[in-house]
Design a binder for these strands. Structure first.
Length: 875
RNA sequence: GCCCGAGUGGCGGAAUGGUAGACGCUGCGGACUUAAAAUCCGUUGCCAGUAAUGGCGUGAGGGUUCAAGUCCCUCCUCGGGCACCA
């Protein structure tokens, strides 16, 4: 019994010794720590502001520092941008690769509500953890430019941009529907509402109109569409933005209400179907509805309006498979035929789009058709297919064709007739050409604590009029149209907190709970809310102090809403250029030099919101003369999701989440970086694989061994022609692949070279040095370590990027493959000088080719120079 | 319903219209070792055959071409986006 135990422990001891040796061989943890320290101390990745060099700015969508820490998906994009950053640096560019924190947001606030911990405390802890994790992956980040959206020195400028928008009339206040939970007494964000219930507690929620600050993004609709053309973005993302903005062209037509002086305005994209309008529909919220309803129908219509008001957006759209509506009892007169057209109210017409009323053409619109069938309303065809194809011209028919039943327009081509009809309507002053957008204005306020305070105060009409007349900073900041809001039946007027008084900091608060009234927790702090405000200078002090002397001091209340999380991320790409500037958002000279990111990478889930909002702000600041460039992100890329090993989306509840910390401990950051890129195309959705990472780890160990095998190293240029050729093939392919963001292909090629170096007896030390340079952007720690080992001076990124000698890739001997009818039948080697005739006749004589050609007629001979011969045979 | 994108071995994936399956993983066989780990060598699309070799093969069906994973048409499946926007 003793002996086996003794043997066992002896074996374990030997194993441990061997393990220690192995670790000494490629001790990635020590190597990575060493070089991360080196980069930090040497400030290797400092971006220079006044450089003569050409710039390259690589930007990642900055993370929200959650409590859960980084997961394996985060670094995918960061690694990609880092590879580019390091590659461009080696190519001689002045590179900026920054990192920061999008740190306002719900989770910290929810945690605060639960525990009473100030969100800034939670945020700080999370940021520290994220920074630690990101640093452990060894990115070429200029940490001197780190930013944080919750830092008052940062959000001072977020507020400053808001003031500009306010000044230009692009901000207003309106009642807008938001999710309201009567049980929680709180406004909920979309993501807090799951299946019509609150995510917390599962309480029912409803749409409720609440006072909101709104940004007029619709004023930029045209510019946002036009700007897309110049962007190097994924087509799908451009298309999504275009669809989101949803521009359509058509006409606004007036239908006079029978027996009234007024007309009902409708919007249509199909003025050519005007004669097919057999009824009209107004939205339940339409302002003229009251006048349209005849007394006999009043009860029914009222009931319908009430029912519609109770429906959520979801019920009114998705789930409302069946059309509903009620006849108002009124008629309009058709603008061209003068016929009576009944007016209905139905909730399939939205008050928020167009004029909130439509002319219904059931013959040529699916929705109207469905409605007309249900309520037995006449259906009148006015477009006929030219080819008379009965199947395809079945009603409802929305295609093109020839106009019929349309009086003077009969026989004309419908598409071409649109403009004709519009101009005819214009001549009669009963219509005009019109453009509409699906894009809605941006609800910019949140009834939350943990966000940027909106720098507005509210005063009475008298005080507002006085402010307009008072010389000083405030008067100049006012928009042409005053921003107003009704509170308890009194109209209040908005005045700004001027730039000189920014940042308007978040006050301390005792409770983070919502106020219960649908206002933010800030509304519960009277000391902060009620102020004395100087109409000339914008100075403000709490009303718990005595009113200061001076005629310009008035009583005011602060705006209590805060900004949405999007605000800080709308312009962060600018702040990296000049993170500590106290005078400007960004120094114009620096903005001129750096411009926008040359490469921007992040998830496709931001295709519309973040990327559209940021473009809006950037374009606005450009129009204001603050920025030299109109568009923020010239080149955009979306990395694909990394799934769990089981092929499912990584999630805590499924338990398939992989933490980078664990992977780094087991294989090192270089293996992690390399494997995330080796997994597949950057844009593809792909599953993680524990086994797979061992493959790239093995490759790194191989490089490590070959770089350390001093006995195989030769001085001077590479003598082995095969090695030399492969080396330059690798330089070419790796360079091209990095430029094309095809890092998986670059890695494959380096594996091929490493496998070759392992097989040959010796190779030049220059060869391994070049390989290390190629590898450096992808696996920077190991490359630095080995570069130093083979006699290079760190840092390896300061070495000029290797240039491929293309002349080496053309060999004297070429291999030509022989095909018969496109199928491979043989191959042969020829000298570079061999003629077409020589090669073809050799092909015909080839034994295996003969087997497929004898007894048959060669009808065609194809020769692709340097590649192949294809003989087409018959019979 | 509409608009995109993608379907290639057991798996992740390579292939300017020109040798399909590079590279990696897995499996199998072997070397080294007392043994293991590590490392290395060979092999690994399917079918037939001891083999040489032949046939089939890139979601399905058609087409263009001397030649198609790649281009065109129709369809299927999966993924993403939009969804009563007149």
């Amino acid at each position: 019994m003793l002996l086996p135990n003794f043997c066992k422990s002896f074996i374990i001891k030997i194993y441990l010794i061997k393990m220690a040796e192995e670790e000494k061989q490629y001790d990635f943890l020590a190597i990575e720590k060493k070089w991360q320290k080196f980069w930090e101390e040497e400030k290797t990745f400092l971006a220079e502001d006044n450089s003569e060099k050409e710039k390259f700015y690589a930007l990642d969508m900055f993370p929200y520092p959650s409590g859960a820490g980084l997961h394996i998906g985060h670094p995918e994009g960061y690694v990609a941008s880092d590879i580019l950053a390091r590659y461009k640096k080696a190519c001689g560019f002045n590179v900026l690769h920054p990192m920061g924190w999008d740190a306002f947001g719900l989770p910290a606030e929810q945690y605060a509500i639960k525990t009473g911990t100030h969100p800034s405390v939670t945020t700080q802890a999370n940021v520290d953890n994220f920074r630690r994790q990101i640093k452990s992956i060894g990115f070429a980040i200029d940490w001197d430019r780190e930013i944080n959206t919750t830092d008052p020195n940062y959000y001072k400028w977020t507020q400053w941009i808001f003031l500009k928008l306010f000044q230009r009339g692009l901000a207003y206040v309106a009642e807008k529907p938001v999710w309201w939970c009567p049980n929680l007494l709180a406004v909920l964000a979309n993501e807090e509402v799951v299946d019509g219930k609150s995510e917390v507690g599962g309480h029912p929620v409803e749409r409720r109109n609440l006072r909101q600050v709104v940004l007029r993004i619709t004023a930029y609709a045209e510019k946002l569409i036009a700007g897309l053309d110049e962007l190097d973005w994924p087509n799908s993302t451009k298309r999504q933005q275009k669809a989101w903005i949803g521009r359509s062209e058509g006409a606004e037509v007036q239908f006079v209400i029978e027996g009234a002086d007024e007309a009902l305005k409708v919007y249509t994209t199909r003025p050519d179907t005007l004669y097919g309008a057999t009824y009209m529909v107004v939205a339940p919220e339409h302002p003229l509805l009251d006048k349209l309803v005849i007394p006999e129908n009043e009860n029914e219509v009222k009931a319908y309006i009430q029912a519609a008001a109770k429906k959520s957006d979801l019920d009114r759209t998705d789930l409302a498979k069946d059309k509903s509506g009620v006849f108002t009892g009124s008629y309009c007169l058709h603008p061209l035929s003068g016929e009576k057209v009944p007016v209905w109210v139905a909730d399939y017409v939205l008050i928020t789009y167009g004029t909130g009323a439509i002319m219904a053409v059931p013959a040529h619109d699916e929705r109207d058709f469905e409605f007309a069938e249900k309520f037995a309303i006449p259906i009148k065809r006015v477009i006929a297919r030219v080819d008379g194809d009965e199947e395809k011209s079945k009603l409802p028919y929305s295609g093109s064709g020839i106009m019929v039943n349309s009086a003077d327009y009969d026989g004309l081509e419908a598409d071409k007739c649109k403009a004709q009809i519009i101009s005819d309507l214009e001549a009669k002053e009963i219509g005009k050409g019109a453009v509409n957008y699906k894009l809605r204005d941006w609800i910019f306020s949140r009834q939350r604590y943990w966000g940027e305070p909106i720098p507005l105060v509210w005063v009475s009409r008298e005080d507002f009029e006085k402010a307009k007349m008072t010389e000083g900073a405030i008067r100049d900041l006012l928009p042409e149209e005053p921003v107003t809001s009704d509170k308890d039946g009194v109209t209040l007027y908005a005045l700004p907190i001027p730039a000189s008084e920014l940042p308007l900091k978040l006050p301390e608060v005792e409770k983070y709970q919502p106020s219960g009234t649908g206002e933010s927790p800030l509304a519960t702090i009277p000391d902060w809310l009620n102020i004395w405000y100087d109409l000339a200078t914008g100075l403000a002090i709490s009303q718990n102090e005595a009113k200061p002397n001076g005629e310009n001091w008035v009583s005011a209340t602060r705006e209590t809403n805060t900004m949405p999380q999007w605000a800080g991320s709308c312009w962060y790409h600018l702040r990296y250029l000049d993170p500590n500037n106290t005078e400007h958002l960004v120094d114009p000279e620096k903005e001129e030099y750096w411009g926008g990111p040359d490469f921007y990478i992040g998830g496709a889930e931001h295709a519309v919101l973040h990327l559209l909002y940021a473009r809006f702000w950037h374009r606005f600041l450009h129009d204001e003369g603050v920025l030299a460039h109109p568009e923020p992100y010239k080149k955009l890329f979306h990395q694909g999701l990394i799934l769990g090993e089981d092929g499912n989306k990584m999630s805590k509840s499924v338990g398939n989440v992989v933490s980078p910390d664990v992977v780094i401990n087991a294989y090192g950051a270089d293996s992690l970086r390399l494997f995330e890129m080796f997994l597949g195309p950057l844009e593809a959705v792909k599953p993680w694989s524990e086994k797979g990472i061992e493959g790239v780890h093995r490759f790194l160990k191989k490089v490590f061994r070959e770089a350390n095998s001093a006995h195989k190293h030769l001085v001077g240029e590479e003598k082995n022609p095969e090695t030399l050729r492969l080396l330059h093939e690798t330089i070419l392919k790796v360079t091209e692949s990095i430029e094309d963001l095809r890092f998986n292909v670059a890695i494959s090629q380096m594996m091929i070279l490493a496998n070759h170096l392992q097989k040959v007896e010796s190779f030049s030390i220059e060869t391994i040095k070049t390989l290390l340079q190629l590898l450096a952007p992808l696996a920077p720690h190991l490359s630095e370590e080995l570069w130093e080992k083979v006699g290079g001076t760190p840092s390896i990124v300061n070495q000029a990027w290797p240039q491929a000698r293309k002349e080496l890739l053309v060999s004297d001997e070429i291999t030509i493959v022989f095909q018969v009818n496109g199928k491979l039948r043989g191959e042969s080697k020829f000298s570079k000088e061999a003629t077409k005739e020589e090669i073809i006749s050799k092909a015909k004589e080839h034994e295996k080719v003969l087997a497929f050609t004898t007894g048959k007629e060669i009808v065609k001979e194809i020769y692709v120079p340097g590649k192949l011969v294809n003989l087409a045979v018959k019979g």
